[in-house]
Every structure is written in C-alpha cells, then in structure tokens.
C-alpha cells in the first residue's frame, strides 16, 4: 500500500496571530512537492507539523499506512524532516550517519556496510572519521541527507535545503535529491524561490496569506526575485 499523508483542517496560531489554516492537503507516494512562500509564512512550521515534530492548534495529520509503535508518539518511522541548517551531533561523521540505523537495531556488520554505502552515496567517505562539527554547510547538508537516506524514508521533508549553499553544493544536493526521487522517495521541498532542487518537483504549492494554493508555479520566479533584490543590495552599500 502506498504511503499517503493527509492534512485536514489544520490551523496553527501563535498567540492570537493565525499563521495558517489549511483545509485539505494530500501528499501521495512518489510525488515531489515544492512548497513555496515568502519568509515567515509558516513553511517550516507546516512541514514540522506534517512530520510530527510540532503540534497544530487544531486539525489532523494522518499518515497511512499507520506504522506507529506505542512508544513513538506522533513521529511516523517512514517520515523524516531535514532542517534548513542541519544539526550535527557532537561526534564523528560516521557516528552521525549511523545514528538512526543503530536505533533500529541490526547486526554491527550490517550497520557498518550500510553506513559505508551512505557515506559513498553522499560523497563523504573521505570525511568519515572527521568531527561532524568541522564540516562546511554543504557537507552538513549532505551528511543530513545521508543520515536520512540510510533509513530509506518513504516521505522526506527538506526545509530550504539549498539556503546559504554555493553553486557547487547546490548541484550536489540536487543530484542527491534526484537520486532519492528515482528510488521512489516522496519529497516535499520548501523554498521561497526556485532552484536546482525545486526544479525537480512536479507539484507546486504556494503558502500565502495563511492559505495554501495548489499548482502555482512561475518559471520566471528566480528572475522576479533577482530583479526585486538588486535595488536592495545596492541600497545597502
């Protein structure tokens, strides 16, 4: 049975301010969704709620088929959320990659093999023994992807995965995301502008004014943003 995430009458408020109210949203297996919206509209909050990391004020998020274990609470084992700036544990790169797999159990040999595969996949094998805190922004993003890839998630939330990355890192991340899509992972990417990763998406959502709009995609969005940004940049100097 294919994985399906259904959002129903979801409302999030901070105090009296309503961040968003989403009547209905469905994400089906194999989809690649770009969640667009300006800064502060609630993209991160929405994705965290969908991933089970935050509670909505009202409404439901249901992931089917249900695989909840009694101790896991709201977090579905097939759903993984990656932060805009990934958090790396205070250990070596290899230990960070192995973290999720060790939680699931299995033989040491099996874990070792899979970790090695994940490191090769994310092109981090040369950094395996390095402290994770010494990695650059792009390497951290790849580490986060490897940490997720090793657990073979069916639904992956990527929160602004290319923010603050240089062109080379963006294309590497885009390549890894493309491979995840080919493997059948459902992906939802949040970004306020189009980039190499969002170009991989086939479905576009716009979070604006507290509501979610379907199928809004402008190919010239980056240029629009660039033209809007230029005067500000000059104004700063």
């Amino acid at each position: 049975m294919g994985l399906e995430l259904t959002v129903d009458n979801l409302v999030k408020r901070f105090g009296t301010r309503e961040l968003f109210a989403i009547e209905q949203l469905q994400v089906r297996e194999g989809e690649s969704v770009h969640l667009k919206g300006e800064n502060g509209v609630g993209k991160t909050t929405l994705m965290k709620i969908m991933a089970g990391l935050e509670k909505p004020c009202s409404g439901t998020v249901i992931v089917t088929p249900k695989q909840r274990r009694w101790w896991s609470g709201r977090i579905h084992p097939d759903v993984i959320y990656l932060h805009q700036t990934p958090y790396v544990f205070m250990s070596k790169v290899i230990d960070n990659v192995a973290y999720g797999l060790k939680l699931r159990g299995g033989s040491r040999q099996n874990i070792k093999i899979k970790v090695k595969q994940a490191l090769v996949w994310a092109r981090l094998e040369h950094l395996a023994e390095q402290p994770a805190h010494s990695l650059s922004g792009g390497e951290r993003q790849r580490l986060a992807l490897a940490r997720a890839w090793i657990l073979a998630p069916r639904l992956l939330f990527l929160d602004e995965p290319t923010a603050n990355l240089d062109r080379h890192s963006v294309s590497t991340v885009a390549e890894l995301v493309s491979q995840l899509l080919k493997q059948g992972t459902t992906i939802m990417v949040s970004s306020h502008q189009s980039n190499r990763v969002t170009e991989l998406c086939t479905r576009h959502l716009l979070l604006e004014g507290g509501a979610l709009h379907e199928g809004v995609h402008h190919e010239n969005m980056p240029h629009e943003i660039d033209s809007m940004m230029e005067p500000q940049r000059y104004a700063q100097h």
């Binding site: 965290k48 991933a51 990656l82 932060h83 700036t85 544990f89 205070m90 973290y99 657990l151």
Partner: peptide, 28 residues
C-alpha cells in the same frame, strides 16, 4: 542545547527516552 538536536533525534527514530539520552550526550 539547540532545539534541533531533539527534533533531529526524534525524526531519525529516537523515542522520547532515547532522544533525552542523546541530548544528555550533547550536553555532556
């Protein structure tokens, strides 16, 4: 400790008790 440490541990499959241990390791 960064709130993301807790969220990362939880999203990678740690139940609350295990995520707490992870946080304790981070704050060792």
């Amino acid at each position: 400790i960064d709130r993301r440490a807790w969220e990362t541990a939880r999203t990678l499959g740690a139940h609350c008790a295990r995520a707490s241990v992870t946080l304790a390791c981070e704050a060792r």
